[in-house]
Amino acid sequence: MEWILSALILIGAGFTLVGSIGLAKLPDFFTRLHGPTKATTLGVGAILIASALYFSTRQEGISLHELLITLFLFITAPVSAHLMAKAAIHLKTRMLKRTQGTPDFKNNQN
């Protein structure tokens, strides 16, 4: 049990850290968007599942309410990423020169 918990916590913390490293290191806004939406969400999800397991085994009765935050994060992370990307396109945020394609519907129709 303790092994599973430890593994989940370490994986979660690792992915959270990777997400933030991506946020700090990647070159432009649109690439930075990828770190937090995927890595951080999964990292926090893993930590929350570890917490649910921990409290289910330590106390009487199962504790599942952590799943609620996990579910909420998995639903909201893509929505906020979508909105931020839309705002960035609207403001014409600087992007990498070597980015292929343009954030536009007309130019891109092949």
Binding site: F30, H34, T37, I75, A77, P78, H82, A85, I89, P103
Partner: peptide
Amino acid sequence: ANTISLTPGTVSCD
């Protein structure tokens, strides 16, 4: 769109 945002290296923008 949500699935695309959560899976391999892609984020849906608009």
